[in-house]
Design a protein around this nucleic acid. Sequence first.
DNA 1: TATGAATGAGTCTTCATTCAT
DNA 2: AATGAATGAAGACTCATTCAT
Lengths: 210, 210, 210, 210
Amino acid sequence: MAEALKTRVSRPIARGEKHQRILDAAISVIAEKGFFQARVSEIAERAGVADGTIYLYFKNKEQILMAAIDSAFAAFLERARAAVSDAAMPPEQRLSRLCQLHLETLGGNRDLALVFQTELRQSARFLAQFSRTRLVEYFDLIRSLVREAQSAGRFRPDISDKIAANCFFGAIDEMVTSWMLSEHQYSLAGAADAVMNVILKGMENRPPAE
Amino acid sequence: MAEALKTRVSRPIARGEKHQRILDAAISVIAEKGFFQARVSEIAERAGVADGTIYLYFKNKEQILMAAIDSAFAAFLERARAAVSDAAMPPEQRLSRLCQLHLETLGGNRDLALVFQTELRQSARFLAQFSRTRLVEYFDLIRSLVREAQSAGRFRPDISDKIAANCFFGAIDEMVTSWMLSEHQYSLAGAADAVMNVILKGMENRPPAE
Amino acid sequence: MAEALKTRVSRPIARGEKHQRILDAAISVIAEKGFFQARVSEIAERAGVADGTIYLYFKNKEQILMAAIDSAFAAFLERARAAVSDAAMPPEQRLSRLCQLHLETLGGNRDLALVFQTELRQSARFLAQFSRTRLVEYFDLIRSLVREAQSAGRFRPDISDKIAANCFFGAIDEMVTSWMLSEHQYSLAGAADAVMNVILKGMENRPPAE
Amino acid sequence: MAEALKTRVSRPIARGEKHQRILDAAISVIAEKGFFQARVSEIAERAGVADGTIYLYFKNKEQILMAAIDSAFAAFLERARAAVSDAAMPPEQRLSRLCQLHLETLGGNRDLALVFQTELRQSARFLAQFSRTRLVEYFDLIRSLVREAQSAGRFRPDISDKIAANCFFGAIDEMVTSWMLSEHQYSLAGAADAVMNVILKGMENRPPAE
DNA sequence: TATGAATGAGTCTTCATTCAT
DNA sequence: AATGAATGAAGACTCATTCAT
């Protein structure tokens, strides 16, 4: 009975832990080598398991990589949603917080930044739907904040929420990319205010100067 | 004899022409399959040459792909420079033209869009300097226009030209990406004004409303 | 001896039953997949035991498969011996009964037919002696009946019992094989008389027609 | 021009030769190891080519093995047809010739015998149609001779040509199998007359003894 | 120059077997 | 005795690159 209980309790944990170790190892390998250069044997090695063990948890190489990217993005999305959940805060300020979180998260995790900037897009193009779905969810989050700001009269009503979201996301995304390619010579999160200073100003609803 | 003569006369052209055919074929294959899924034998087939012939023109697969991407981007950059060369035009209007050209060019060439949005970034990460250099040149073009606009008092002086360029390029780039992933359901170039309406407004130098 | 006794007393039912379940599962898997395509894990699943449990009863995969085939054939041989044990019956009639039994048994058990026709031969070629020995025993049974018929003057004395047994067994065996490959479109046992009508006639001792 | 011609002439030969070398090597490996134990790398080694070269000639492992078996059987079938093509010879004598050829051919080529007796049957069960088709063609050849003998009043009309063919083929086939398993201690072809002495006698049309 | 058959290093994946529980 | 997660050896197959023609 103690045996059974122990087994029932410990196995799931052990299993989950190994599953996660493989996902983490996969992110690390993808970050370093890229999606198509990632080797199953290297993921196994970094996860501290045998090659064959990988296949107890994932159907094939593609599924490992997809799951790894998706799981990383899902976690990111989760935090993003939490960051903008305070309905009491004005929507443009929540967009600022989202920008801050985005730059902080990727600026603080080189592997994540590499994967997001180069591999997520690959997966969006070539691979199954779910990674793309995550991106769409992120966009929808931004768009809903934009519409909210428009409804509140804080953003100009004449701009499309889709285009606004593209400008918002594109500007932030490009900040990450150029930072990533520039070998991180500066603090990414430190640029958040400057970016928002341009983007939000471009959207704000101001009476024409007289 | 007629054969030989024909060969002798046409060769100089033929070489250049064959070289170019390989580059074009490479772009086409990369657009379809992606950088790492592109096969040398498929490039050869589309170029109408034997596999081995590729190696008379390029050292290895990486060099083909790099040269193809670089050459496509170089042509793009050339047109971009020409588009903003009219010093008589106000800088912010030249930025608008650049945006228009960017969206028109990629919106009108699916292969180019695919390569720029997903593979150029890959190459920027993994491959030799020259593709990255092109990107930097494009950025420098944007930054110089931004600085010019600042000097002329049209753009706010308090924003960094680098960040402004990131916002400008990022917004446009994201327009292309989302259009590309959305299966081109709308005219990309048609969105140029809307994007500039946000970005340029975000940079323009206006006295605060009182 | 103490070991044997202990086994016989304590585990007889449980051990024997699980052992047999594995053998049955093995026959079923071999029939479906073939000897070399049979998977240990599938045998374990069909036997309702864990993979590792298999190895408490058998040294390795080859031993399982060998034992399964051997056990199936041993049962068959047992019935064959019983069928021809009536010394009062004329030997050629006993050969007919053997033929009938052979066709009935395999015609009534698809798995057994598949295993006998394709896998027994494999095992005869590649695997240890014991399966082959069973075949030899079956042959010897046939040969002894042939010799008996010759002694009784019912079969021609000029034909070798070995060759006669080959003809007898070969004809029956081929009936099974062609039936098996033809998707069982007809009753196999129903052909027994027709086959014997050829084979026994070929062996019978008749004065030449004048 | 001479170059082109030479290429056009020599290449096909070279290709065909290598193709055949691979088939021969495959037969040899299958004979030794069996269908499912045959390794592509071993076939390549025996054929004197690199592993990858195999795949220039065959789509995958199964295709190699199938082609090898089929080609060997096709050659056998060809000879069989030639052996019984003399319409002037009585049909029962032609059946004897077929038996002789069958036993001679397999008795003289150990690899072929091994492949025919154990692997052809496997392929008939598991693999694509064409090997099975060959077997059917061989059977049809036998059946047509049986029917011819019946029409000529040499064979009893009351037996089915299908069952007669099974007896005929089964007896011969079993001779080969038992010879093969007995380590070839005797001349296989030498047994042809004895086998025919049983089988043909079993089929012959004789008035009942009075 | 041009060809394309040949090469073989490199990787994913399977599955018999082990062993800690 | 029983389990089944973990192992890792083995093997099919791909494809960039070479080189004889």
